[in-house]
Amino acid sequence: MAATVATVMTTMNPEVTSNGLGYVGKTEVEASGSSSTIVKKEEELEILIEFGGGLHLLFSQKPKHTIHIPCQIPQSDLPEAPDMRYLVRWLKENLLSERPEMFGEGDSVRPGILVLINDADWELEGELEYLLKDGDEVVFISTLHGG
C-alpha cells in the first residue's frame, strides 16, 4: 500500500507520468529490456517499443523497451529492411513473457490492439507492410481492458 501511495505522489505532477497509456509510470527512466543492455551494432536497427492499455503486463510488466533487430531480415532472400510483420513476430518470440494469445493473432496483433508508428495510426502506414527505420517508435495499446 505504501508503494501505491508513493507512486501517486509522483503522479500529482501530470508532466511526469500522464502518458495517456493507462499505466502509472514511476519515472521516465528507460526500462532496460533484455536486449537494450547490449550496445547497438552497426547492422542493427534500434526500435523503441511502448505498451499501453495494460499490455505491458504481458511483457515482463515493463511498459518501455528498447530493442535491436537486424537491419535485414535474416535467412531471407529479400534485401529488405524488417517490416512490422517481422517486428510483431520478433516481439512474440523474444519479448512476450506470458499469455501469447492476448497479443498476437495470425502474423499480426489481436484485433482490439491499436498500433502507432511514430505517433501515427499504423492503418495509415501500411500496417504489417511498413518498413522499419532506425529510431522508429512503435506503440501498442490494448483497448480490451477495463473501461
Partner: peptide, 17 residues
C-alpha cells in the same frame, strides 16, 4: 477514445478485474 487519451496524455488506469 483510446487515441484521444493517448494524444492528450490523459491520466487513466488500465487493468483487468
Amino acid at each position: 477514445i483510446v487515441m484521444y487519451a493517448y494524444f492528450k496524455k490523459l491520466t487513466y488506469f488500465s487493468t483487468e478485474c
